[in-house]
Amino acid sequence: MDVGIVGYGVYIPRYRIRVEEIAKVWGDDPERIKHGLLVEEKSVPGPDEDTATIAVEAARNAVKRAGINPQEIGAIYVGSESHPYAVKPTATIVAEAIDATPHLTAADYEFACKAGTAGIQTCMGAVEAGMIKYGMAIGADTAQGAPGDPLEYTAAAGGGAFIIGKNGGKTIATIEGTYSYTTDTPDFWRRDMRPYPKHGGRFTGKPAYFKHVLSAAHGLLRELELTPQDFAYAVFHQPNGKFPLQVAEELGFSNEQVMPGLLTPKVGNTYSGSSMIGLAAALDQAKPGDRILVVSYGSGAGSDAFSIVARDAIEAKRDAAKTVAEYINNKAYIDYSTYAKFKRMLVR
């Protein structure tokens, strides 16, 4: 495999709501929630933001870092479970807004929280096959959690965009390999025309998240003959703060390897954006030669694992767009009633 990341960008909305603010509404103990989920606050989209606007901002940042002519992007895939339209692609909005139209292919993906990494794999294949010069994969969501559901504490908004191309001078990181593990496991779903997802409670843990993330990680390490010690960073899908730390421990990764890419405590679960933003956070810090493990997870269920090695070009491109930390630190807190207004739970 001879493909890599040419550019990347993220976007996280400015608004945050604290766990305490949500807990107050439902009579929950905020400390128990914060310890149980390892989440302090989550991002909230503004009233004029949706998955398309988030995807566009992330994509524009990726183009800035890549420093390429967007007309050379031959494919755009936007993975999300909150596409603004049920029928009509988000990807065309992104393509138009980054001036990549019209000579490209585009489509929307859905695979719960891993639709973004599925897009990366599609781009890798198309680049490797010589079908396209560059492909862009985006994972973005304005995640839905029903009021009062534990998901409400974590369901957040954000997105990450990656431009994939052949390894060369512009490549900031090489993708050494990818491995997927997929079964039919209904741990979390949203039926057609329903506003909020349902989930299997504790069933989302062992037979779902852990089984798939561990299997994909093991598969990739085995195939590439690597061990946890070979990696500087490890990023796992982060529905909460706790799951990725548990899975890291089970695989033999240390907190030092995981913490730089663990954003849930400050941002919440950005669903399709989650592992994408985690990878971006690792790339924001990585030195040339650093190896990064990324394992996404999408309910339903499947995991995509990647091994990525940072290259020299990363240093020069890092500051061409806003970093994950900049987005995390630029925040404004809102109360629950403003949150309800922004999320259109208050209908006029």
């Binding site: 503004g46 004029d48 933001e49 949706d50 398309a52 606007t53 566009v56 901002e57 524009r60 603004p84 807004a97």
Partner: peptide, 11 residues
């Protein structure tokens, strides 16, 4: 006089 960047939003 405030500096402004133009962003992409739902109208």
């Amino acid at each position: 006089g405030d500096e402004v960047e133009i962003v992409f939003r739902r109208m």
